[in-house]
Every structure is written in structure tokens, then in C-alpha cells.
Simulated scan of single mutants.
Amino acid sequence: MTAGELSAPAVVVTGATGAVGRHVARALARRGPVRSLVRDPGKAEALGIGGEIVVGDYRDGAGLERAFTGAGAVFVVTADPLRPQDDAHILDAARAAGVRRAVKLSWLAVADPRANDLVARWNRESERLLRSSGLAWTVLRMRTPMSNTLSWAASIRRESVVRALGGDARTACVDPRDVAEAAVRALTEPEHAGRTYALTGPELLSARAQTATLARVLGRPVGFEELTPEQALARWSARLPRPVAQALLEAAQRRQAGESAEVEGDLGGLLRRPPTTFAVWAADHASAFG
């Protein structure tokens, strides 16, 4: 960035402690003023998120006002399909404060007309709100993040096994760090306004193939056990509301039917380099799997 750009209004990062948002906040803090909206400042500190930290919730009007006062752009990340009003609250507060640009993190399943689960419908509506907000907008539709495999870490450490549904279903999982780099470009480069990008990794991989890659990285055998749909739903329901767990099951079943088995080229164009492979991501995160 030029010296003039460094004195530009702050960029607000919502979801700043999430898998993508943490990397966006860190990268922006190295370039200029950034303000992260978080519920847990201790977690933000532990993650080493730089810039200004604003404590608040998407339903907290005062917190949103503090975050957006004097800001010029916002990275929009919402995480709860049972709270669809969160996107409207963010965009309304941003518009009222004079924010001019918004980059939304969405999901690539939105582009599949056969995807009609709760999460897909929620993201479609969130995108509609963004496009009608009056802000200069960009949508980043990401495929399954590689960091989702961190949910396997405990069973790999304890039992050297991965248990998942749809072990042979292939998808082009994507490195959250790459998505964050794309988001920073969309937030700081004007040519991305009005664009929707499909962000995937560079290769189609199944859960079994990811397990094999983790085994090579760890230097020890790691087995794979296929879950039934009922077992997978029970596992998701133990930590998520039942409607969200049901949506995850429907998405997994679409993957099994081959409906997400595509590699898109938008990410490489945004990054101006090849997207990161799962093997590289796994080597970088090997310590998490023990």
C-alpha cells in the first residue's frame, strides 16, 4: 500500500477470531488501521490479532457503532443460521456509519440450485442483503476449509483414527489462509467491487485421502472408519442445534453424490499464485494432531 493508503479509514473485521477472520485481521494490521469486533477479547489476544479490538455482539447496537465509527470497509462473517438477522445488523450499522465497502464470506454451495438446506438458504439470503445494501460489495464463496479436519485431532491423538461420514466423497477443500489473503485483496483493491468469487483448493480430495496425507505428515498409521448417517447426525447434534446438524448431514450427502467435486479457478487468479495444497496445510498444522 502507498503512504496515502496507510492513513485510510479503518477496516472492520467481524468474525476476527474465526478460521479465516484471524488471518484477515493479522494481515490488515500489518498494512494499516484495522478494528476487530470480538465477543472474547482474551481469545483475540491469545491468537495474536493486532490492531484495535472492539468488544461487542452483532445484536449489540452500541458495540457495532463503536466498531464502525470512522471505518471505510468491513469484512462480514456470520456463523449462526439460526440468527439470520446478524447480517442485517452488521450492514445497517456499517451503512449508518458511512462505511463504503463490504466483503462477505459465504459458501460455494449457494451456487448449487439443488442445495436447499438451512445453511445454503441462510447464505443466499445473506448475499441478497449485501447486494441490496447500497455498499460496494464483494462475495467470497468458499469451499470446505481445510481447518475442518482439526475436528479429527482428538481421535488421531488418542486412537490414531479418523471417523467421518462419506469417506470417499471428494471436494476441493481450501486453506483458510488463502481465503484470508483473497479477502484482504477484495478489501483493499477497488477492482473487486461487484464481483462474486468461487474459492476452492487446487485438488479434489476425499476424507480418506486427507487421512492418508495426515498419516504421512505424522509419520505413523492413521486409520479411517466410516460413520453411518445416523452416527454422523448424532455427533453433530451433540454440539450443535438439531436444525444445523441436519443441514450438515444434507450437505454431506450432496458431497457423496458428487455435487461439490469441482475445482474452481478464481482463487489462483486472486492470489496470483497456485492455491495451497492440503499436504502443505497439514504439514504446517502437524502439531495440532500430535
Rank of each mutant, 00 (worst) to 15 (best):
A252I: 07
R177D: 11
F68M: 14
S7L: 12
L249P: 15
L240P: 06
S126H: 07
R157K: 14
A238K: 00
R255Q: 10
G15L: 12
V280A: 11
F68R: 14
D87K: 00
A245R: 10
A120W: 01
E259Y: 00
T276R: 11
L233V: 03
V162E: 07
G48F: 08
R208W: 03
G223V: 01
L199T: 05
E230I: 08
E159G: 05
E203Y: 01
L150D: 02
A62F: 01
A207D: 11
A115S: 13
G51E: 07
G32S: 02
E226K: 05
P275N: 06
V12G: 04
E262K: 09
V161I: 15
R100H: 10
V217K: 00
D60I: 13
A79V: 13
L187S: 07
W107E: 14
W236I: 00
P190S: 06
R216Q: 07
E181D: 13
F75L: 13
F224A: 09
A136Y: 01
S287I: 15
D80Y: 02
L130R: 00
R26P: 04
S155V: 08
T188E: 12
I156E: 07
L47M: 14
S132P: 00
A111H: 07
C173M: 15
G56A: 06
A136N: 11
L227D: 15
A182L: 04
L150V: 06
V54W: 02
A186C: 13
V217F: 03
V13G: 06
A120V: 10
W236L: 00
V99D: 11
R26L: 07
R66F: 08
L64E: 09
E65D: 09
R95N: 09
Y197F: 15
A153C: 04
S237F: 02
A198G: 14
A245Y: 07
R124I: 09
V119I: 14
A164K: 05
V139S: 01
A73F: 04
W107P: 08
N116V: 10
A257K: 05
S106E: 05
A261G: 07
L6M: 08
E230C: 02
G268K: 06
R128F: 03
R195Q: 15
D266K: 00
P275D: 03
A172Q: 06
T69M: 10
L6C: 08
L271G: 03
